[in-house]
């Protein structure tokens, strides 16, 4: 068996008449003395001689159109497959998506920074038609004339006012540690003195 791979690789090109003069001479020189390569060349000739039928000009002319239509059909099928499974909203143009995104961001921002309304105190329906919310000296009334709700409101107000006075008193006491009690008392006005007096009375009664 011939082991000259170089020549054997050139045999197909020799058959195709694709070798230059030097290579052709080299191959023919080898063939004259190598039966194995001659057999191989005959085999290659048989293989190359196998005819390929021609389907005809009509077949060749129609092929581009057939391929184009099938490509189009498959692409449309792919699109309709996705379209039936993806909500229509996802096929909207980009500007729509941008507008939606802006809306979402704006809504989220408003929810984060909006002013939180102060809790509104529930007030029971008064038994009387009107409830006084403020009291002035000119409007002094008999407690017995007030409804339970109005009495509660007065009590709530008074407690708040007294708490403020107490805070102020404590501040004064802390800030004026050097002052004597008498000095501190002289700094109070009449109203404050009366409130203080009432407070002391109530504490004495409790004790």
């Amino acid at each position: 068996m011939c082991t000259n791979n170089d020549i054997q690789e050139l045999l197909p090109a020799y058959l195709e008449q694709a070798l230059d003069q030097n290579e052709r001479a080299r191959v023919e020189g080898h063939l004259s003395s190598c039966g194995d390569c001659r057999t191989e060349l005959e085999l290659l000739r048989l293989l190359a001689a196998e005819p390929v039928p021609d389907p005809g000009e009509a077949f060749w002319a129609a092929m581009p159109g057939k391929v184009f239509r099938q490509v189009r059909s498959e692409e449309q099928q792919k699109r309709s497959w996705w379209g039936s499974r993806v909500p229509l909203i996802l096929t909207l143009p980009r500007w729509t998506w941008a507008a939606v995104a802006v809306l979402i961001v704006a809504s989220a921002s408003w929810l984060l920074v909006r002013p939180v309304p102060a809790p509104i105190a529930r007030v029971a329906t008064p038994e009387r038609s009107a409830v006084r919310t403020t009291l002035t000296p000119a409007d002094a009334m008999e407690l017995a004339d007030l409804s339970d709700t109005e009495v509660d409101a007065v009590d709530l107000w008074a407690t708040g006012e007294l708490a403020l006075l107490q805070d102020d008193y404590l501040d004064i006491m802390q800030n004026n540690a050097d002052l004597s009690v008498e000095d501190r008392l002289t700094e109070l006005n009449t109203e404050e003195l009366e409130s203080l007096s009432r407070m002391l009375d109530s504490q004495n009664e409790e004790s």
Partner: peptide, 27 residues
């Protein structure tokens, strides 16, 4: 190249009784 060589050698062996080894003087 290796696939080519092995394939051709096998074909030659299978068709040895068909192939005469004769070539025309002018291919």
């Amino acid at each position: 190249k290796a696939n080519y060589h092995h394939g051709v050698q096998k074909l030659k062996a299978m068709l040895s009784d068909t192939l005469t080894g004769e070539i025309k003087s002018d291919v």
